[in-house]
Design a protein around this nucleic acid. Sequence first.
DNA 1: AATGAATGAGGGTTCATTCAT
DNA 2: TATGAATGAACCCTCATTCAT
Lengths: 218, 218, 218, 218
Amino acid sequence: MADAQSQKGGADRRNRKDNRREEIVSAAFEEFATHGYAGARLEDVASRAKVSKGLPYLYFKTKEELFKAVVRSVVTAHFNTIRGKIETTELPVKEFLKGPFLQFMQDLVSSRRVLIVRLLMAEGHKHPELTQFYLDTVVAPGLETLSGLIDKGVERGEFRRTDLSDYPQLLVAPMLLSVLWKALFERHRHLDTDDLLKTHIDLLIAAIEVPEQEREAS
Amino acid sequence: MADAQSQKGGADRRNRKDNRREEIVSAAFEEFATHGYAGARLEDVASRAKVSKGLPYLYFKTKEELFKAVVRSVVTAHFNTIRGKIETTELPVKEFLKGPFLQFMQDLVSSRRVLIVRLLMAEGHKHPELTQFYLDTVVAPGLETLSGLIDKGVERGEFRRTDLSDYPQLLVAPMLLSVLWKALFERHRHLDTDDLLKTHIDLLIAAIEVPEQEREAS
Amino acid sequence: MADAQSQKGGADRRNRKDNRREEIVSAAFEEFATHGYAGARLEDVASRAKVSKGLPYLYFKTKEELFKAVVRSVVTAHFNTIRGKIETTELPVKEFLKGPFLQFMQDLVSSRRVLIVRLLMAEGHKHPELTQFYLDTVVAPGLETLSGLIDKGVERGEFRRTDLSDYPQLLVAPMLLSVLWKALFERHRHLDTDDLLKTHIDLLIAAIEVPEQEREAS
Amino acid sequence: MADAQSQKGGADRRNRKDNRREEIVSAAFEEFATHGYAGARLEDVASRAKVSKGLPYLYFKTKEELFKAVVRSVVTAHFNTIRGKIETTELPVKEFLKGPFLQFMQDLVSSRRVLIVRLLMAEGHKHPELTQFYLDTVVAPGLETLSGLIDKGVERGEFRRTDLSDYPQLLVAPMLLSVLWKALFERHRHLDTDDLLKTHIDLLIAAIEVPEQEREAS
DNA sequence: AATGAATGAGGGTTCATTCAT
DNA sequence: TATGAATGAACCCTCATTCAT
């Protein structure tokens, strides 16, 4: 029992430490997202996380390390879900695009997480290893998966063979635009990004779809 | 003579002053584009413009004023050209999109001017009036013009009536993506943005085009 | 048995405690000697002593207390040996100087312990009670003893009566110089301090020695 | 006249700037000498020099640069005087040592400038290039000159040939000791360094002097 | 109009010291 | 007794802005 007690004590401390770390990263995310990298003050991060000014430095050697941790934490684990879905779905590709994939983009656009995208756009060029990390972890696998999805549609006879396979970026470009619009212009002029994304998917499908009557029997 | 002299002197001075101003703004553009708003140092702006450290303050009260001037200066006058072309072209809309419009996007992506876009993404939300200005001056008229272009295609029977008219942003979203890719990822992974943009236009046309045989004679 | 057990336990604890203390002081000596007072970090002291960051504070209230303990520990017990030898030697003073005393100085110059001298030089003026302690414990008795040694030589007819008795510091000044040379300049320019010290002793003896033929028979 | 005026204006500014620089270095000398390198606060340097907190950074990139400038400024030009005298004196070497040279050492010991020696002792090992500079600029030439002085005495038949020529450091070691005594112990126990130095010179001369009756006629 | 020296508020970072466990 | 997470004061350095010339 005494053992259990002390173990538990250790676990508590571990948990507390982990929590603090997460709280700091989370607070930092807000501050970076709001003020940009240079504009964010570590002291504000600390007080948002309700810790002392010096604590972040116990977990992150420098502001930049903290920034990297923020990017990593936002990125990690969120994109694997949809990727898994894409690769295992049984739906016709067209239905998948109009359903789950559209949904995914719509959700992403309205989530706070995408602020990281704006951050990266704004500050990424000053942190090459970070962009590389993001490219390797999120962008490249994501594009790979999308390419695969298009190809699957082609193989199944749903889609014509087009250059879209080479530029899966085109599938998500309007999502990027939506993110930026929301960040910059939304307060001045509303844009229905959900509908915009839906329109985008519909047009894309129209562009590459093989009409029902032309499909081969198999 | 004396009058002419002094007038000429006045003109010189005016010119010199204007030049100075332009040089400062231009130097500031480079510094802002390279280091971001917070990261740019007014002293570097001054020395890039080959003026003294204090001079920018004779023209711009604060760093923010200078920033606004930069945005305005980059924005102004560059977008009217293509807008004019769009509105007066005699080409079939399809041909216009595949020709001059594609060319315009390709040029823009590789111009230094688009760095302003990254700047706005990074700092825009802190300068609402600036984004408003940008929206009013560049974005809104641009979108308006694009809408008109699509509609013209519809009216001429080239295109089906689609929701693209409501979301002309979809025409330029890949351009935005291209800009960002170049800024962030290009050094890690090459993307042929010219070809990507071409593919985009082709797909879009495929999506909305009325097939030759279906067109009404008029 | 139980008693023995607990007694032993008590002894262990005492020993352990003393060891810890010594280890901390010893680690602190290294850190202070290497980085100076202000430059030494208590965390480094702790990790060098392989104890936790907080432990030194159980033994020493502040960094300054630890510093004092370091000075005291290095000082204590090391100088009594030579002092004892000086006071009890049967050798002619001249031989004593050329033999054991020279040896002592040569050893001291190459020992790590003299780093304390540099420390005191650097920080002593900020810790008056510490310099007083050092003066009372090491310097004053040492000089006293040296004075006595010279006087013994005079009384024995080996040396002339000179003012050297009033300034025994002159006997050790080259040792000080040697210490500093090693600390500062040795890496740039070698100095054979052993030979320098030998030369010093030889010259000093030449200066005060009563030539053989002039000595009184006794 | 206007020209002269503006020239004078320029000169004024130059002078003012140079003055500021000197004032900062001088203030820094005091602060470093009092608190050591790490203990000195640039803000205190600034306010001692009656300039703003940031000004020192216009003249010295970092604290270390300022420190180096302090060392250089104290060192420069002060040691050439005595060196010149040594090399050109017409006095018998013995008389020179007992007169001007002793005087020089006595003056030096009581000047504020020697605090730089304590500084170097304390911090020198952390700034190798600085100690090298000091060695090359002050120490090495000084020792060279002293060696020459001894040799001149030997050549003139005043002195025996001894190893002192190889270790001119022995001539100045008591000066070093005096500096340190004053810095550390003087407030606790008085030492008449003037007399100590005189005794030192007397003893040294006694050690190497060729007695009058033994000198060769020439 | 133009210069560039000077100012001083502000932010990143360190580290002696405290304290909950 | 021992740990190491946490605190917060202090300090170096930067840079937007001012001002004497």
